[in-house]
Design a binder for these strands. Structure first.
Length: 444
RNA sequence: GGCGCGUUCGUCUAGCGGUCCAGGACGUCACGUUCUCAACGUGAAGAUCACGGGUUCAACUCCCGUACGCGCUACCA
């Protein structure tokens, strides 16, 4: 396989959704696998649906996932502009050529291609490894140049794919039905068509094609929600495609190594975030603590627009101490916040939380806890702490669980926190005592 | 309506004629571990392989038909 060149060709009609990222993944992987080029082309030919900022979101999405392209609208290349809106003269030239050959005709200011209705169009699809044949009678003369001078997708994709020397067209299977159009266009110019791989459709919860209209999430929203790019990529790879050794967890590099279109399942796939969350948790647990600390820090920075306030957000050092406590408990980076906010925020107590403990003489018990803590030799040792309070629980006729839960609620206001001893060590002796006093005050 | 693609546990999927009364993963449930929650370990439930006909000694796997879903049928992409 020589000179592999593939492109992702999104339309800047809104935030790129996850389906775009999904297709980009296979473009990128295929290009890398064959030492080819991965190209970004912006198909901004629909002026009515054009959304100004969305091209930057496309760049950002590809950058976040690490799908670095070799040629594109923002970095150039050797095939002219990579935005179709800047290639109008090119489409005009080829449209004129067709007009001269009598293969197209003018129609109310637009130019239509004259479909040859006899015969059929056949091609081999890499996905499913099958031949597909469509009768030409199913096609109608179609517009190639709109009256505003912009080309239609049906025309521009053929012109650009040829001019940009695209070797493999990887796109959604909604284009299969239009293959006769493309094949006739290639033939009109005497161009050799590229190879085609029509990917299955990604569908939403309503089983229809993933789209913004149907509530598909923007790809970047996953970043905002605290998903790791490695997990997102791994998850996307699992949709429609299967690792030949049936592995569930693998890296991009590994995927590149084993990738083949034959491992695609041509059926539509439903994007279900539950498995992504599991995978994300797996990746978080696999991440080195120091790396995870950095990622959480960056994540929090990004959330607050780079303005992390010292007073109510953890510092990098604080995060570093918290990471081992939360690593096994978070599925997304965002989970860090509710799990740890009590460390650096004022505790808001709630009577109901204490009541759930179902402890008689609760205040008295807590007073005793406070007394024990004040007597305990500093710095507190985890094992001493544990044995002290297990003993105390026994003396007070409480279960160990009740005892530790009482302390937990008293220092955090929550029934669920990271492990108690470690949490207290992060909090420090003074703060712990302060909080228990505050809890007592609240209860009285 | 026409044409195309598809149809295996809730979800993602394995399966390419016998090894499948269908395997894995997520999720769910139970149990274990346990200071809570997780993580971890063990186990369970969960798919008459859309349906009906063929072909074959043998079909989830091949063929035909039907149903259903989705897509295309735009001067959207």
């Amino acid at each position: 396989m020589v000179n592999v060149r593939v492109r992702i060709a999104p339309s800047p009609t809104g935030s790129p959704h996850i389906g775009t990222a999904w297709q980009a993944l296979f473009d990128y992987v295929f290009a890398k696998k064959h030492n080819g080029k991965f190209i970004l082309r912006l198909e901004d030919t629909d002026r009515a649906r054009f959304v100004p900022g969305s091209e930057f979101e496309i760049y950002e999405t590809l950058k976040w996932l690490g799908f670095e392209y070799n040629e594109g609208p923002d970095i150039g290349g050797s095939f002219g502009p990579y935005k179709q809106s800047e290639r109008l003269d090119i489409y005009k030239k080829y449209s004129d050529e067709l007009l001269e050959k009598g293969l197209s005709f003018k129609d109310e200011g637009a130019v239509r291609f004259r479909i040859n209705k006899s015969g059929q169009a056949s091609y081999h699809d890499l996905v499913g490894d099958k031949d597909i044949t469509i009768q030409n009678t199913t096609q109608e003369d179609f517009v190639i140049l709109k009256s505003d001078g912009f080309p239609t997708y049906n025309f521009a994709n053929v012109i650009d794919d040829h001019l940009m020397q695209i070797s493999h067209v990887i796109r959604g299977n909604e284009y299969i039905s239009s293959m006769p159009k493309y094949l006739q266009l290639y033939r009109s110019f005497n161009w050799k068509p590229p190879q085609f791989a029509h990917l299955p459709l990604l569908v939403g919860s309503d089983r229809s094609k993933l789209s913004k209209r149907h509530g598909a999430k923007g790809a970047l929203e996953f970043k905002k929600e605290g998903f790791l790019k490695e997990a997102v990529i791994n998850f996307l790879a699992l949709l429609g495609w299967t690792h030949p050794q049936a592995k569930e967890i693998f890296s991009l590099d590994e995927m590149i190594e084993v990738f083949d279109f034959k491992d695609f399942n041509p059926a539509s796939a439903f994007f279900d975030v539950t498995k992504l969350e599991w995978l994300n948790g797996e990746y978080i647990r696999k991440t080195q603590d120091s790396n995870l600390k950095t990622q959480i820090y960056q994540y929090l920075l990004q959330l607050s627009d780079g303005a992390l306030s010292k007073t109510d957000h953890p510092t990098e050092e604080e995060i570093e101490r918290l990471v081992p406590l939360v690593k096994e408990r978070i599925k997304k980076l965002s989970d860090f916040i509710p799990l740890t906010s009590f460390f650096y925020e004022r505790v808001e107590y709630d009577q109901a939380q204490f009541q759930k403990l179902n402890i008689k003489n609760q205040n008295k018990a807590l007073e005793t806890v406070l007394k024990k803590l004040e007597e305990m030799e500093k710095p507190w040792q985890a094992d001493v702490f544990e044995s002290t309070f297990r003993k105390l629980a026994e003396d007070l006729g409480l279960s160990a669980s009740q005892m530790f839960q009482l302390i937990r609620v008293a220092i955090s206001g929550q029934l669920v926190t990271p492990p108690l001893f470690e949490s207290i060590q992060v909090l420090g002796e003074e703060e712990t005592i302060n909080r228990i006093q505050a809890a007592l005050k609240f209860l009285q």
